[in-house]
Design a protein around this nucleic acid. Sequence first.
RNA 1: CGGGGCGUGGCCUAGUCCGGUUACGGCGCCUGGUUUGGGACCAGGAGAUCGCAGGUUCGAAUCCUGCCGCCCCGACCA
Length: 490
Amino acid sequence: MATKLTSRESDYSKWYNELVVQADLAQHSDVKGCMVIKPYGFAIWERMKDVLDQMFKDTGHVNAYFPLFIPKSYLSKEAAHVEGFAKECAVVTHYRLKNAEDGSGIVVDPDAKLEEELIVRPTSETIIWNTYKDWIQSYRDLPLLVNQWANVVRWEMRTRLFLRTTEFLWQEGHTAHETSDQAVEEARKMLEVYADFAEGWMAMPVLKGVKSANERFAGAVDTYCIEAMMQDGKALQAGTSHFLGQNFAKAFDVKFATREGGQELVWATSWGVSTRLMGALIMTHSDDAGLVLPPKLAPIEVVLVPIYKGEEQMAEIVGALQGVADQLKAAGFRVKLDDDDSKRSGWKFAEYELKGVPVRLAMGPRDLAGGTIEVARRDTRSKEIVPMDGIQSHVKGLLEEIQTSLFDRAEERRTSTTTSVDTWEEFLAALEAGGFVEAHWDGTSETEDLIKKETKATIRCIPLEGNEETGKCVRTGADSSQRVVFARAY
RNA sequence: CGGGGCGUGGCCUAGUCCGGUUACGGCGCCUGGUUUGGGACCAGGAGAUCGCAGGUUCGAAUCCUGCCGCCCCGACCA
């Protein structure tokens, strides 16, 4: 483990790949494009999941679970949806294996062919709306606010740990409403939940906006999104929330009896965030020494490391640290006392820095004698010696400061790399420099395609808080009513 | 699907061009000892169908043929 990470500057992509593996977050599985999420990585995801789950419940949602397998015919019921996902579906065709006649191993039994092939869900709209059809009869059944935590499979050509894997974990909310306005309100509300989570817990500033038609979810009327900026100047879509109109209600014939006694199609939303958030979290804060975690999501907020010579001193110092650990635990902090005698303290320092533990407390014989303790913070890599008295409130304050400071630093980086341009030359230069580029666009798919082809940049979003400002499209010179945000993206 | 790279103890790797006894080294692991304020040191030890299948040869990690897998870079996507 004496290996040094590749620096971000020399090869950002390599830095990321090495960090994920070395910080013990995940590893490649033997199946192409899939990953094993290791216990430490999963602990971070569990934190995210727990917090989000509570946020969903606080906004009136309940959890349920729908099947992994979807009859192939369901997918084709909504035209845009099938168009969007058909190219990346895993298909189950058989249900049995048998020993090969020639003894060469095990083969698919051709006699066990499924009558209707099943697809492994790339998302669950179709099977859920097919089910909602039976759940919804009256306006009294609405709104229907359901979420599920699940795995999904999308057969992508190119994958990267957490950012894009063939199988990934996520949550998908699927709601049904009486009116269009209520559904739009729901989609926007969940976007706010995502934004609050990203900024308040991940310490990751996000832009809220609407996707252009090109970037819209297959089957949605509108796709709302939060977009984050990574340290290499590339944008990352961190969460999406869709207003689905009546598209799925139409496709699956989901009608309800209105207050007036008529029959109407319901209005729908869906919204999701995935293990991709892990990638966002890593790339937002981490440095060349390894992972940097915001305290609120860190599985371990404070690690305590004893420094000692001999068994007698070890017992004394570990005993003193145990007291500190107990005190911090009682105050509600996630704490680990590492009294493993087989690793030296220096090794532990490096290890917990690599793993992004926000605060480290170290105590040696000098501290024990003087009633002090060494406090190191991961984000700035600074150390100080403080009195043992009042350590709890000191740690509390420090953790809050780290959380705030990580957000501020990320926001400052985003702000300083966001540029507003009016000419094509400026546009190209800004893209080259990295970051968000605010520019006028004539509103057509053709122009967006053209720009993407020429520059690899896409419209990340049309900001919700964008100020109305007329101008001329940066590419075609046609009229534009608002600046949109471009960037190269993950 | 194109382009590139790689497959050798758990991990990284030398050896492959130019075939030759027992497959180099490091990390990690086990045992014992000395150590301990930033990834300790010494001694001993365990651990390998050299990706798979054929072929050439007295002899293959090395040469030939075929296959499989993974990673990276591009076209599709969260």
